[in-house]
Amino acid sequence: MDEFLIGSNTEKVVRTAECPVLTVKGPIPNLQIRNIVLPSDFKREIGTAVEKFKYFQQMFGAKLHLVYINTPGAFESSSNLRARMQKAAERYGLQNFTINVYNDTIEEDGILHFAEETGADLVMMATHGRTGLSHLLSGSIAEDLVNHSDIPVLTFHLK
């Protein structure tokens, strides 16, 4: 119950840190970041984090796999989603990327399944860093992901 109400220490760091947070579950011998998964809804909010995403992609010389997790509760057509993602990629000047729509029951599972299937070395995502009642009501996909992913997760605040 405490973890549900308060969250793990890792979740607290992800929620409150003003700098990017890299979460790694354990030792990873010979870590090479070649494939980065970037899950998002690709709406306006992502713009505040795009420069950070691009910086880390360029630093690692990695391919960026843009992915929208299409769920039954928020289903959209694949063609509309791909068009939105392509527009976002052009607007923000992304390079060396793929566009992907992945269907799953919930976002967190979809991100994990897609990352595993693509052989991702890193998942990068933005978080709102909500606290208090808004955090309790809305939750955080990024915080859930860092608790369940064996793949390193790099999070950035949208603030």
Rank of each mutant, 00 (worst) to 15 (best):
residue 65 H to D: 10
residue 66 L to H: 07
residue 66 L to W: 00
residue 66 L to C: 12
residue 67 V to M: 08
residue 68 Y to W: 06
residue 68 Y to L: 10
residue 69 I to M: 06
residue 71 T to L: 01
residue 73 G to H: 00
residue 73 G to D: 02
residue 75 F to W: 03
residue 76 E to Q: 12
residue 76 E to F: 02
residue 77 S to A: 14
residue 79 S to H: 04
residue 79 S to C: 09
residue 80 N to Y: 06
residue 81 L to A: 11
residue 84 R to G: 06
residue 84 R to W: 00
residue 84 R to T: 07
residue 85 M to D: 04
residue 85 M to P: 07
residue 86 Q to N: 13
residue 88 A to D: 05
residue 90 E to D: 14
residue 91 R to N: 12
residue 93 G to A: 14
residue 93 G to W: 08
residue 94 L to H: 08
residue 95 Q to V: 13
residue 95 Q to G: 14
residue 96 N to Y: 04
residue 97 F to T: 01
residue 98 T to H: 07
residue 99 I to H: 01
residue 99 I to M: 04
residue 101 V to W: 00
residue 101 V to M: 01
residue 102 Y to D: 09
residue 103 N to T: 01
residue 103 N to R: 01
residue 104 D to H: 08
residue 106 I to W: 02
residue 107 E to R: 01
residue 108 E to D: 14
residue 108 E to L: 12
residue 110 G to N: 04
residue 110 G to F: 02
residue 110 G to L: 01
residue 111 I to D: 01
residue 111 I to M: 08
residue 113 H to A: 15
residue 114 F to M: 05
residue 115 A to C: 09
residue 118 T to M: 15
residue 122 L to S: 08
residue 123 V to L: 10
residue 124 M to C: 11
residue 124 M to L: 12
residue 124 M to D: 03
residue 125 M to H: 00
residue 125 M to T: 00
residue 126 A to E: 06
residue 126 A to K: 03
residue 128 H to N: 09
residue 128 H to Q: 13
residue 129 G to Y: 00
residue 130 R to K: 15
residue 132 G to Y: 07
residue 133 L to T: 09
residue 133 L to N: 05
residue 135 H to L: 12
residue 137 L to N: 03
residue 139 G to L: 11
residue 139 G to E: 06
residue 139 G to T: 04
residue 140 S to L: 07
residue 141 I to N: 02
residue 141 I to E: 01
residue 142 A to T: 06
residue 143 E to N: 12
residue 143 E to S: 12
residue 145 L to D: 03
residue 147 N to G: 12
residue 147 N to V: 11
residue 147 N to H: 09
residue 148 H to L: 15
residue 148 H to N: 14
residue 148 H to Q: 14
residue 148 H to T: 13
residue 148 H to E: 14
residue 149 S to K: 07
residue 150 D to I: 14
residue 151 I to Q: 12
residue 152 P to K: 02
residue 153 V to I: 15
